[in-house]
């Protein structure tokens, strides 16, 4: 009469307190975030894990969209490099996007995001690839000359060592001069996560006072 699985905690939420210690989230916020995770991870296969298709579906509301950046973000979230996101990976990555997270974590994440080939620097060809991808996905059309001049100007400012690439130190200096470049590294939603997903209280395991 006893199905032990029925009494197990859902996969990925075995220890919300430990996850709260690892991230900037409180235990209640971790539990509320898990409500979001459950929604996204059950969209295609209800297995308690987010695959790339489910991630794209949540981002674009369609799984048809190919996006260089959605792929890149997914790969950075996927710290276990197994092609799927468990709740721990999801919570740890989103923690960086919390308004209270250290700016250095946001700078590091954004650098890795744009360092497409993971060589430790952002090269001109990568910047061009990302500019073209952004223009294509938004249906904007700029001539190659205009794109090249935007990249020239960017490297004139960012590449202070004049070696044709942007290293981590140069990236840091650039974003500190232009904080708007980190705008998408902060999600205000994460501050209100417990009010966005109030149903977490029905599954809460702890008294988070």
């Amino acid at each position: 009469c006893c199905d032990a699985d029925l009494y197990k905690q859902p996969r990925g939420l075995e220890d919300p307190e430990a996850l709260a210690r690892e991230t900037v989230f409180s235990v209640s916020e971790i539990e509320a975030l898990y409500e979001l995770f459950k929604k996204i991870s059950s969209a295609v296969i209800d297995d308690g894990l987010i695959n790339k298709e489910e991630f794209q579906l949540a981002l674009f509301k369609t799984n048809k969209k190919e996006s260089l950046f959605a792929d890149r973000v997914f790969d950075l979230f996927d710290t276990k490099h197994n092609g799927i996101l468990d709740f721990e990976e999801f919570a740890c990555a989103l923690s960086i996007f919390h308004p209270n997270s250290p700016i250095d974590d946001k700078i590091e994440f954004s650098f890795q995001l744009y360092d497409l080939k993971q060589q430790g620097f952002i090269e001109r060809q990568e910047v061009k690839q990302m500019v073209v991808a952004t223009l294509t996905e938004s249906g904007m059309n700029l001539s190659d000359d205009v794109i090249e001049s935007i990249i020239d100007k960017t490297f004139e400012e960012a590449d202070t060592k004049h070696d044709g690439k942007i290293d981590k130190e140069e990236w840091r200096n650039l974003v500190l001069r232009h904080p708007s470049l980190l705008k998408n590294m902060t999600l205000q939603y994460l501050k209100d996560i417990t009010t966005t997903f109030p149903s977490f209280v029905f599954h809460s395991q702890v008294d988070d006072t």
């Binding site: 979001l36 929604k39 996204i40 969209a43 949540a58 981002l59 674009f60 509301k61 996006s67 260089l68 950046f69 959605a70 792929d71 890149r72 973000v73 989103l94 996007f97 995001l113 744009y114 910047v127 990302m130 500019v131 991808a133 952004t134 223009l135 996905e137 938004s138 700029l142 205009v146 001049s149 935007i150 990249i151 100007k153 960017t154 400012e157 650039l174 232009h178 708007s180 470049l181 705008k183 998408n184 999600l187 939603y189 966005t196």
Partner: peptide
């Protein structure tokens, strides 16, 4: 005037980088 724009400002407009969309799931 697009030429006045930093390439990374342009890139940051990508929808794929707008993770706020995850919260409309």
């Amino acid at each position: 005037q697009p030429v006045a724009m930093n390439a990374f400002e342009l890139i940051s407009l990508s929808k794929g980088l707008n993770l706020g969309n995850l919260f409309d799931a």
